[in-house]
Design a binder for these strands. Structure first.
Lengths: 267, 267
DNA sequence: GACCAAGTTTCGAATAATGGAACCATAAGG
DNA sequence: CCTTATGGTTCCATTATTCGAAACTTGGTC
């Protein structure tokens, strides 16, 4: 489908294969992977062997299938804990979800896509890994637009080329120009709206989470259904969102630079 | 700090580096990695570059630090959803946690260690990524012993060599022989106990989750504090645990072999 | 301005990855 | 029972990648 990556070396290829397995969503046979891979039989075979050896893939010998390995879950724990804003944002986000009774998302930008790293809702109980890690489009979501609005020129350029501009609903912005105009507006307001651009009935108000330096750390959004809330209702929470985003950013910066070596807690 | 792997090729080395970053628990400088890596400067440098390029690591240019990248969070979503029992077990585990008021763990065995893939407690609300992905020792936990008891001879052998037999408490089994005897007992009972072997005051009753073929899919445990429950109290839930484990296994097998192509729901 | 430390680049040599083709199972078909 | 097809595994000469010592930046310190 999409134009995939400029693979660097063997490692790039291996990770490519990993993605292929991931995207399949269920255990895959060798031959199915072969069909959609650009690599010749022997090469693919060796890559799969290596990945399985390493625990990145799990090979079911009876069925001859490959699935993602548990080592990834292990890595994920660290990744989520250290490379995402979610753990720092948790208490703040929780409070907001409680207070508003609506759903709060925390997201980061990954290769032009929105990657949700947390989702909290006052009502429905726990979801989680089931939600964290999920990806969505940037050009037609509140968090996506909020983050893009504050990217540097070249980062924005890269992000733009990654957008499909598929018209999910009648309100979806479907051109670069329309999106750029919207981003300008967002910069003026300091917050973005999703006006049912991704899913009918779903609206949200979103703000970027910005580092002191101005770089985009992530996004924060408050989502609701049109049946219960209007855009204006959501807009009333904009300043609160901004306050929280700022606090998350502050936490993040303190966390990231603990300079003083704090006694090597390690595991 | 165990004896690490027989790296296969460049990919092995790259994943090794990834682990090093993960184990550090916070953003790392190049030089710190260099110090603990067996690779020469230039090699390590190239590996880091490749991984960063691929989004597996995030490189903060200002600080010169590397942290795990968001791509891992994305992969984690798929990995957890497809390679772990947790999503299938969710409703059952939830119900058990509610019913007993105690904490329920779902775990799998990864290279001789217990890897928790889910944790539910009736009281404390959501945790999750924060818990799923966490690893612990096998020889001194209920789930660990329950799973080991049903391993094939050679798998058990491999698992045994991975155990440290560190005496966490006065009750910890600290020798292979003691552990093997315990495993025999577990096979007879069909369930395992943790008699404060890992942490003082913490006890649990655990059962393996077994495939029809007899292979070990994972483990399920009910954990409590000695202040509230006794081993006998927990033992009363053993048959319930077995019933649930069996149902999880059944779900897992149906899920893994969906033979009939169900209309490609995709992501 | 000399020194040091962290990080980056170079480049020939060494090594590991490549992939076409052959091979081995197992299952299907005549 | 032999033939063919299919999915998976192995070989091995060729070639592209990776390796790593050393040279080179960059930026801070005395």
């Amino acid at each position: 489908m999409g134009a995939e990556g400029h693979s660097d070396g063997t490692v790039g290829k291996a990770l490519d294969v990993l993605d292929m397995v991931a995207n399949h969503g269920r255990p895959v046979r060798f031959i199915d992977l072969l069909a959609q891979s650009p690599y010749p039989k022997a090469t693919l075979y060796r890559l799969l062997q290596t990945l399985a050896n390493q625990g990145m893939l799990h090979h079911e010998p009876d069925q001859g299938t490959y699935a993602l390995g548990v080592r990834l879950v292990r890595l994920a724990h660290s990744a989520w804990a250290q490379s995402s804003l979610a753990p720092l944002a948790r208490p703040l986000v929780d409070a907001l979800a409680q207070q508003t009774g609506e759903t709060v998302h925390v997201a980061q930008l990954d290769r032009g896509q929105v990657l949700y790293v947390d989702k909290r809702s006052a009502i429905q109980s726990i979801e989680m890994f089931s939600q964290a890690g999920r990806v969505g489009p940037a050009y037609c979501t509140g968090v996506g637009k909020a983050m893009m609005a504050y990217l540097s020129a070249d980062a924005l350029q890269r992000a733009l080329t990654a957008q499909s501009f598929h018209p999910h609903t009648a309100h979806t912005l479907t051109s670069t120009d329309a999106l750029l105009a919207e981003l300008e507006q967002i910069r003026q307001d300091g917050h973005a709206f999703d006006r049912e651009e991704h899913e009918p009935g779903i609206i949200c108000c979103a703000v970027p989470i910005l580092a002191r330096s101005g770089s985009v750390l992530g996004g924060l959004s408050l989502t609701a259904h049109t049946a219960r809330k209007s855009l204006n209702d959501l807009a009333e929470h904009a300043s609160e969102l901004k306050r929280i985003a700022a606090e998350i950013a502050r936490n993040a910066e303190n966390w990231r630079f603990p300079e003083r070596n704090t006694e090597e807690t390690n595991q």
